[in-house]
Design a protein around this nucleic acid. Sequence first.
RNA 1: GCGGACGUGGUGGAAUCGGUAGACACACAGGACUUAAAAUCCUGAGAUGGAAACAUCGUGCGGGUUCGAGUCCCGCCGUCCGCACCA
Length: 880
Amino acid sequence: MATERYNAPEREQHWQKVWEDKQTFRTADDMSRPKCYVLEMFPYPSGRIHMGHVRNYTMGDVLARFKRAQGFNVLHPMGWDAFGMPAENAAMERKSHPKTWTYENIAAMKAQLKSMGLSLDWSREIATCDPSYYVHQQRLFLDMLAKGLAYRRKSKVNWDPVDQTVLANEQVIDGRGWRSGALVEQREREQWAFRITHYTQELLEALGTLEKWPDKVRLMQENWIGRSEGLLLWWKLDAATAPAGHDALQIFTTRPDTLYGASFMAIAPDHPLAKAAAEKDAKLAAFCEECRRMGTSVAEIEQAEKLGYDTGITAIHPLDPTWKVPVYVANFILMDYGTGAIFGCPAHDQRDIDFAKKYGLPIIPVVAPKDEPKRGQVVAKIHEGVAYLDDGEMINSHFLDGLSPSAAFDAVARRLEGENLDGKPVAERKINYRLRDWGISRQRYWGCPIPVVHCETCGTVPVKAQDLPVVLPDDATFDQPGNPLDRHPTWKHVDCPKCGKAAQRETDTMDTFVDSSWYFARFTAPNAATPTDRAALDYWMPVDQYIGGIEHAILHLLYSRFFYRAMGDTGHGGSTNLPEPFAALFTQGMVVHETYRRADVEPPQWLLPTEVKFDVDGDKRTATELATGKPAIIGSIEKMSKSKKNLVDPDDIIQHWGADCARWFMLSDSPPERDVIWTEAGVASAGRFMQRAWRLVDLTIENAAAKGAAMAPKLGPEALALRRTAHKVLDQVGRHIEALRFNVAVAQLYELSNSLSDAFNASGEGLAEAQREACELLVQMLGPMMPHLAEECWARLGYNTLLAEQPWPKADPALLVDDTVMVAVQVNGKRRGELSVSRGADNGEVEAAALKLEAVVRALEGKTPKKVIVVPQRIVNVVV
RNA sequence: GCGGACGUGGUGGAAUCGGUAGACACACAGGACUUAAAAUCCUGAGAUGGAAACAUCGUGCGGGUUCGAGUCCCGCCGUCCGCACCA
């Protein structure tokens, strides 16, 4: 039989059509079977898929196909995170409509995803920009509003005065709008927000239950939530110095133990006390204004000097009424953390010590090591300006002296909790969090409309449920900055749902992170008349394996955890109200690629991989620009990006090499959580393996036993060895796929292929049947990874069934253990030889045989062993 | 600054529990087939010394625990990531 090359692009289309025609991957809600919900983070429809998508969706697909073969009822859906600014920006640039642009992109990307041969149930497809999706999101919003989980508040926002919109912090680059380049202003604005802080403690605690999440992500969320335990503490203000109406100042501290080290108070420029004081002090007002103008970028904060302004107000020490400390306004105090005020203890806080040195404030050490000379050294260091942060015992602290800081914390808390200030306790223990409520208002068109109406008489009124959805008007204009909904001539003018008088719609739309905070739940019942279907949720949720990028470690994954809880509390959860949506999370690495640029040009002019050719001389590799013939520089390996031009188009790869080849490459070599370096050589290698697997099937058809042949009753050593390899690999590959160690699974499939190849150059009793078995197992194991090739091979092996519908084969346990094992023999831990040992051999026999080994005798140099350690099936160590 | 992860051949990486370090692949070198090339097949290879047998060294560096350490413990160095004026 002449071996033709496997024509991947052509055959892949064939099998995709077969799967589609047969609806192979359509998922039924067959609740009698065990389920498995495999989900990859859905894409933003930018227009084309990129290699990151290929990697992400390949991993999910391998798992989904594997689980399906194992007999699970698998849910593996796909949709589109379709709202967002790029669509609106594209509309402004090309004078098209965001909707047109988005749906065209969806169509193009859907075709691309289909060409990857993913086992997706497309009947459940969701686009978040479709009214059939966002109607339910509006319903969820209204129910959250009724429960107080959504509310309106005044808050500070980054305002781009050119684009006339709020910008997220990530969209502010060096104090300027990322798109307009305009200086961003801090503005107070009425904003819709979700009360994520209602669940703060729960979101923190439940992290402990997410055992199948990466520790890294859990830790990142933990830090983001930022719990700290401390004391809320009132300081009386000296009436002679304080503005009217301000007789006390409340601060938050995690170190009440260091209270006797206090030498100043500092308050935020926006603090009410600062504002009151500024009314009578023009210089202070100017100082506060200056602070407000200061940038918020990382660089600016690092360079910014710690500045303070003495207000002239003094505060009375809570533990000593005769002790007064000055109150400063300081540029480094944040109004939205704690109470926007602190007491400064310079000796034990580096920032406070810098501040104290600068303004000549006292520095009183109150914690120091127990013993000299360490104590003296620490105190000396403090006076040089190095704060002491470690444990020790209290000094200079009156009734606290000699206590440990933690005991002093309790002692101070106990004393002050009992004291009174105008009927209120002076101090209370308080757990403070960094987590803020989630502001969701965006002054944008292409987002989910917030379904409320503002009425002069009735205030903010929810749209009636039967009037949902509030649909975006198609006839908006995008030719100028600002919110198209706000300037639309008619859309916002409606009657108040309550009193019927003329009123105005809310023109803000929701942050697109809202859309992606519950799509996974909608997939379980994409056509339900309500946002979710309880029975479907009960069956399918939680997602058994979620796969996506680490960049979503905090926002998306935290928002989803919140939202799913909020859904439960508003009657949209499952009957058991399981709070966590994602049982297991996997964060995959990026796809990276070499960069290329023209030589001797500044700034760098980047070249596409397709614009250069390479010459290899020994281990030296040089690049030449194709168009000019000039040498090009091979630069560092970086994340694929448009700016560095180090892009490879999945379409090109799929059309030239086939989807299976791209999939195989993505799974090979690099562990899935790490970055994978995309190389031409790597693709070629994957392509070679594809052809090799194809030839092995040929060899099987020509030389091995026929389909369905019974295993020969007697097996020669060659046949037995091949069977053992095949079944061991089968056993291992299953485990590795389960654990998402695809690179190791791939290596083992190479090993089986090598053994099968070798077997065609050997002969022995029963080998033909063993070859047949090994080849069929190989093809079945390739199924989840290279599904088209595997179907083609399966058909060539004589089957008229679909491989995608075959159950996963079972390894024969008898073949997983060897009759004889090679055991290493060490002398004093150094390997000196090896020994072939039968499985049943007892330790005494093994020890005796080991001591007879020539290399062991030589290494012993006539000495008598003190001890011989025999680890059965593993190792012998002779100790002298 | 705080928190975390990682460090294994020329390269990507493998090594369930502490038990033969370097599986598998890439790149490289040699050979077979070919007029030639491609494709394919075979062979080699951690480093040093040696013709070889073999010996010594070897998982970032320095210590430790252990019969035995890539794996566990302590201290460094380096790289990467996250957060960051958080009281």
